[in-house]
């Protein structure tokens, strides 16, 4: 049960932080998604994000900063395995599942559903 509670609270807090930025700055949601994904990558580089995922599970791996974190982590793994070229291969390899599902479902939904407005 503890993992659920932590996922809810940490994930919720992260969204609250983003909401705070939305309400107090001039930034729009699309812009904030870019900011948070970048922040995730930076936090990952500083070694901060992996422990958070350890503790909060989905609470840290479902919000968008996890996408930046996954890219950085993938780069790290590929650099260890293949050397410097890993910088160019690791990021998208580590996030391939998510991106592919996103593209496929985008295509699928556009065929199956019509926008309701």
């Amino acid at each position: 049960m503890m993992d659920f509670a932590l996922a809810f609270v940490v994930g919720g807090l992260m969204c609250m932080l983003a909401q705070l930025a939305l309400d107090l700055t001039e930034m729009n949601p699309a812009m904030l998604m870019v900011v948070f994904v970048s922040l995730g990558a930076v936090a990952s580089g500083l070694g901060l994000y992996a422990p958070l995922v350890e503790i909060a599970g989905a609470g840290a791996s479902i919000p968008l900063p996890a996408f930046g974190h996954a890219l950085v982590e993938g780069i790290g793994q590929d650099v260890d395995q293949y050397g410097p070229l890993g910088i160019l291969s690791g990021g998208l390899r580590a996030t391939a599942v998510g991106l592919t599902v996103a593209i496929l479902s985008g295509y699928l939904m556009a065929i199956v559903f019509t926008p309701k407005g």
């Binding site: 994930g11 919720g12 992260m14 969204c15 609250m16 983003a18 909401q19 930025a21 939305l22 949601p29 699309a30 904030l32 998604m33 948070f36 479902i62 919000p63 968008l64 996890a66 996408f67 998510g98 996103a102 593209i103 479902s105 985008g106 295509y107 939904m109 556009a110 065929i111 559903f113 019509t114 926008p115």
Partner: peptide, 24 residues
């Protein structure tokens, strides 16, 4: 839900699917 709906990866999916549907 505001950013509560935008920030999770489901919001990322929404950002991809919404224009895909819009421009069908």
């Amino acid at each position: 839900g505001g950013m509560g709906a935008n920030l999770p990866i489901t919001g990322f999916a929404n950002a991809i699917v919404a224009p895909a549907m819009e421009y069908q």
